[in-house]
Amino acid sequence: MNEGKKMRVLMAKPGLDGHERGAHVVAHGLRDAGFEVIYTGLRQTTAQIVNTAVQEDVDVVGLSILSGAHLSLSQKVIDGLKNAGAEDVMVIIGGIVPDEDIPSLKKMGVREVFTAGTPVSEIANFITRST
């Protein structure tokens, strides 16, 4: 890896929930960990997220989901990335996700799920370790 290499992370909120606080906290935390964080705000369609991930050539897509629609939204993002030839982009999820859904999410290709209360440093460490 080159010295000039910076980890680039897209923080996105897919779907219709309007709670941005968690995404803000994580975006700031990752910036402070030395990452370049692209923040796109609320109510993104999965197509917008995939397009952004490809254009920005991010290493990681972080989805913040509190709406309960994590299974279908994650599937759409992962499928979209695959169709765009970007299946090497790591997808992680943060938000409110019931424990029993985590295995299904991982099976579809989500690398990790960070539920409420996770320290941002843990997310940063995970990204650094896994990319």
């Binding site: 910076k6 975006a27 700031h28 990752l30 910036r31 402070d32 960990a33 030395g34 990452f35 370049e36 964080v37 692209i38 923040y39 796109t40 705000g41 993104q44 369609t45 197509a47 917008q48 397009n51 952004t52 254009q55 920005e56």
Partner: peptide, 24 residues
Amino acid sequence: SGGALLGDRLRMKKIFTLKEVFIR
């Protein structure tokens, strides 16, 4: 930290999916 929060896209949502536009 050397990190950055890149937020210009927040105001550009309506052109995200136009195939004529590439944003970096």
